[in-house]
């Protein structure tokens, strides 16, 4: 196999990591929603934590995107 082709395959596999981030982010939002519906008065004070957790989780998906980019353009 050519090295170039292996790079592309590797980049494609790397993007699969984003699935985990998708699960994580959806988990955060679904739990936030169910919690917010149980206790709506406490929800607005927790949006900061929501956004923060979302960003932390999303960063991991971004990492796999970065790995794909590095495989495509740098390695």
């Amino acid at each position: 196999m050519e090295a170039e082709a292996a790079k592309f395959i590797g980049a494609g596999i790397a993007t699969l990591g984003m699935a985990g981030a998708a699960l994580g982010v959806s988990n955060i939002f679904s739990n936030f929603l169910s919690g917010a519906l149980r206790n709506p008065s406490a929800a607005p004070s927790q949006t900061g934590n929501l956004i923060f957790g979302m960003a932390m989780t999303e960063a991991l998906g971004i990492f796999s995107f970065l790995v794909a980019l590095i495989l495509l353009f740098v390695a």
Partner: peptide, 13 residues
Amino acid sequence: VSLSVRLFGNILA
């Protein structure tokens, strides 16, 4: 690392 890559990756993507 995470601080910089998060911002960079989000904006770039």
